[in-house]
Amino acid sequence: MGNTAGARQVHLGEAHVGGLSSRLNWLRAGVLGANDGIVSVAGLVVGVAGATLERGPILIAGVAGLTAGAVSMALGEYISVSSQRDSELAQLATERHELVKDPEAELHELAALYEAKGLTPATARTVATELTAHDALAAHLDAELNLNPDELTSPTHAAAASALSFLLGAALPLIAILLPPPAWRVPVTVLVVLVALGLTGWISARIGGGGARRAVLRVVIGGAAGLAVTYGIGHLFGAAVG
């Protein structure tokens, strides 16, 4: 009984860790989406600001970049997650078929999986039998594929989250470049963008358990270099056209 209870605790602990990992992945994806919005729209509006001091072209370019980027992010995420969900549904169908076709073989397979995790053969058999009696499909999906049939990935939710995170990130440089007077537009935008990138780098490092200082320096230096290049190109083309 003690071994069985311990196995149940391990099983529940693995489910908890899996749920936490899923939430962290969503958070990481949100941070990366915001980071993409910051970088892409900042580079666009700073490049246009290097070519002209007029607010209208900067606003149009920023709104166009924000809209196109959000749509692109949402569409890409929807397609990617739809493919993942199709794979998960196929795995679900395969497990259901195998359980109907040969339930005894599936029971042996489940017991072997728990035995491989360190349980004795007798305890592994008991755990597999009890879990099969409770919900055979869920037991196999968890042990074999680390899937929860009630928590399959949603393409719509993923697309909406990706678009929203991009929009929130992209709004920062757009607001920053439109509010100040012309002489301060680029400096204020660069400052806001670098601070925001530093924050996203720090959050990403904390989520991933890596070194925060290195992550922050990497995104800030990369962002500064990108802004310098786009501003320089905009300034050169602006001067040439003018």
Rank of each mutant, 00 (worst) to 15 (best):
L227H: 06
E98S: 08
A133V: 13
S162I: 06
V193N: 01
E151Q: 11
G56V: 14
K117E: 13
V220E: 00
H16F: 09
V220A: 14
T156I: 05
Y78M: 09
G242F: 15
L92E: 04
R23K: 14
Y231P: 02
P187K: 02
V193L: 09
A138I: 09
G76I: 06
F237K: 14
I233Y: 02
T230Q: 01
S165P: 07
A124N: 11
L131H: 08
A212Q: 13
P182K: 03
E95A: 09
R218K: 10
A68H: 02
V71T: 03
I60C: 06
W184F: 11
V63E: 04
V216M: 00
A139I: 12
A15I: 03
I203L: 14
A158M: 07
A128E: 10
V229Q: 11
L44F: 00
R206D: 06
L99K: 10
L145R: 07
S21I: 11
L197V: 00
A64L: 05
A51E: 01
L172D: 05
R85T: 05
A34G: 07
N35I: 09
N3Q: 15
A133L: 09
R214L: 02
L27C: 02
E109I: 08
E130F: 05
Q9L: 12
E106T: 04
N25S: 12
G242I: 09
L236V: 07
R214V: 13
E98M: 14
T129H: 13
A170S: 10
V71M: 14
T126R: 15
I58V: 12
D135M: 11
G232Q: 13
V48E: 03
R55S: 06
A90C: 02
G2W: 11
L167I: 05
P57A: 03
L199G: 00
N148Q: 13
H108I: 01
H134T: 15
T120I: 09
A161V: 04
L119M: 11
Y78Q: 15
L199A: 15
A170H: 00
P121M: 14
V45N: 03
A64P: 13
P173Q: 08
L32N: 03
R55G: 08
I175P: 03
I38Y: 08
R218H: 02
N146D: 14
T156G: 13
E104R: 12
G226H: 08
W202G: 04
V219R: 00
E115F: 12
A133M: 04
A225D: 03
L119T: 08
A74Q: 01
R213E: 10
A240I: 12
G242V: 12
E144K: 04
V41F: 11
G201P: 00
V219W: 07
S162W: 07
A29L: 12
V195L: 08
L66F: 03
I79C: 02
G19T: 05
A183D: 08
L24K: 09
S82M: 05
E95V: 05
I58S: 05
Y78D: 09
A139P: 02
A136I: 10
A160M: 11
K101N: 10
E106N: 13
A5G: 04
Q91M: 12
V31H: 01
L227V: 15
G242Q: 14
L24Y: 10
S80K: 08
P149L: 08
A112R: 00
L99D: 07
G33F: 06
I203F: 07
P181R: 15
Q84K: 06
A124R: 02
L167G: 13
L236F: 12
T67Y: 02
A225P: 02
L99G: 14
A5V: 13
V10C: 13
